[in-house]
């Protein structure tokens, strides 16, 4: 479904339909924004780069091939633009003092009357979030592409500019690391201890 709509939009864009541009933009702006923030965490840099990506898309549209995957094209362009900008160093000072989403999203203190299930659930959530925070930028990026965006290995490897096997390995290692960091076995004991403390 989604892919068909994308192909149709792409077709229209190549034929010079300006509505297609704004449709594509609206469809992907938040995804691009979320992805950009995974790479740099600097909001204004990400916004600038998104603008640039679309301006270049319009400028180059005559050279584009029908049937390309818009999602992948946009993500790949944004990524290389962001990395270029970050490498050029202009923004480095800003990049340092920005936060990632996981840090911002502290769990609100639980209410007095929590059921055991809720307590367990929020404990699980917290553990997973801590595990995700511990990842490197690159690892977080692949988690985002695979799970938040739901892209497949073909698409991910194109965006990251690596081969499919490397993408698989990167993801596999990342998941293993997450699993090691959450140490699921400790959970039950932990819950009991908290229960008796009360």
């Amino acid at each position: 479904m989604e892919e068909k709509a994308d192909l149709y939009l792409w077709e229209n864009l190549l034929n010079g339909d300006n509505n297609a541009l704004s449709d594509i933009y609206k469809r992907y702006v938040d995804d691009l924004y979320s992805y950009g923030l995974k790479i740099s965490g600097n909001e204004s840099l990400v916004k600038d780069c998104i603008q640039e990506v679309f301006i270049r898309l319009m400028a180059n549209r005559k050279n584009l091939v029908a049937g390309s995957n818009i999602h992948v094209y946009l993500f790949k362009s944004l990524r290389s633009r962001l990395l270029d900008e970050m490498r050029s160093g202009n923004r480095r000072s800003e990049i340092l003092n920005t936060k990632t989403r996981f840090e911002e999203e502290e769990n609100s203190p639980s209410v007095e009357a929590v059921t055991i299930q809720n307590e367990e659930q929020s404990h699980i959530k917290k553990k997973l979030q801590t595990a995700l925070e511990g990842l490197t930028e690159k690892q977080r990026e692949i988690i985002f592409l695979k799970f938040t965006e739901g892209l497949n290995y073909d698409e991910i490897s194109t965006i990251l500019g690596i081969d499919k096997a490397s993408a698989r390995t990167l993801l596999y290692r990342t998941l293993k690391l997450i699993k090691a960091n959450i140490k699921m076995k400790g959970l039950i004991l932990f819950l009991f201890m908290r229960y008796f403390k009360k």
């Binding site: 998104i50 301006i55 938040t148």
Partner: peptide
Amino acid sequence: IAREDKQKMQTADSERILKNIQNN
């Protein structure tokens, strides 16, 4: 968690950028 890990750009910013793109 992964599916909720999306940021929404503020509407004003998003509209400004779209305008810039269209006017370029």
